[in-house]
């Protein structure tokens, strides 16, 4: 650390950095947009046909459905089959996850993550979120997809702070402060505000951004959204507390609002079978 500090003027993340970063985020590719339109219309075969134009998406989907969690003995490779397996909710969720991977860095520097670990995190969040929604008797495609936007906060944090690690360490030597709070205090904008901008750029449904904003610990005027936000906030920290993600440094990039999660804590613990 000492060598990096040599008499250079250190500037933290600025609003300019944020503006530049947001400007660099590409709009959702046309193929994906069209595929999502078909999915929203319930036209899964048309969606599969449309998705064929994106080879990388095909590989992504194939890798995903052949994971042990789906339990297929033989390899599933046809897109029509894959979309059929996923259903409309699952397909929308997976497409949003795929869009997020387009934003992911090739090499993670701030967090000790890699492509596969990030993929696992997405998968795990999706799986647990489904469990929660089933428990809450909620069957809504957009609410189900809300979880896909959450990991965007990690990608944004990595992009904005990867060259400011030493400064953050210096600050943290005197104050328990997380990346999200640093960003908000420096720029008036936090990681979830940036996620909201990404969601808008990608034309994601408004419900998704509302739940994710609430999951950051910020209440809205909507009791249902806030209840989902509490579940998601707790789920996020439950996943960030897994050994691999603790090691990756994800445990302290956001502030955990224990009081905010408290109302759903007992139910969460019982659902996750934690004693």
């Amino acid at each position: 650390m000492a060598t990096k500090l040599t008499l250079e003027i250190i500037i933290m993340v600025t609003t300019n950095d944020i503006t530049t970063y947001i400007a660099q985020i590409p709009p959702a590719p046309e193929v994906l947009k069209q595929t999502l339109v078909f999915i929203n219309q319930g036209e899964l075969s048309k969606a599969a046909k449309c998705a064929e134009a994106d080879k990388a998406l095909h590989v992504y989907l194939k890798t995903l459905v052949n994971k042990p969690v789906y339990g297929f003995k033989n390899e599933v490779s046809e897109l029509s089959q894959i979309f059929g397996i996923l259903g409309t909710s699952g397909a929308q969720q997976v497409l949003y996850n795929y869009m997020l991977t387009l934003l992911s860095p090739d090499k993670w520097e701030l967090f000790k993550l890699n492509e596969s670990l990030f993929f696992e995190l997405q998968a795990q969040l999706n799986h647990q979120w489904k469990r929660i929604l089933r428990h809450c008797n909620i069957d809504n495609k957009d609410i189900e997809s809300a979880i896909t936007l959450l990991p965007a906060s990690i990608i944004v944090c990595e992009a904005l702070f990867k060259s400011h690690r030493d400064e953050v360490m210096l600050l943290r030597s005197v104050k328990a402060i997380d990346y999200n709070t640093i960003l908000r205090r420096l720029s008036g904008m936090d990681l979830f505000d940036i996620c909201q901008i990404i969601a808008k750029k990608w034309e994601m449904p408004q419900t998704i951004t509302a739940i994710v904003q609430s999951a950051s610990g910020r209440t809205s005027d909507d009791v249902t959204i806030d209840r989902l936000g509490r579940w998601m906030h707790l789920l996020l920290f439950y996943e960030f507390s897994q050994a691999a993600y603790m090691e990756a440094g994800l445990n302290d990039f956001l502030e955990f609002h224990i009081d905010y999660a408290e109302p759903v804590y007992e139910e969460f613990m019982s659902l996750m079978e934690i004693q």
Binding site: S173, A176, F237, Y238
Partner: peptide, 27 residues
Amino acid sequence: MRAVVKNRIGTFHPQGFLDGTNVPMLL
């Protein structure tokens, strides 16, 4: 995770869920 030092008191600030498998990864 590093300890925050204030008035000669060092404090670790973990978050979330702590068990025997994840705490070693914090440090």
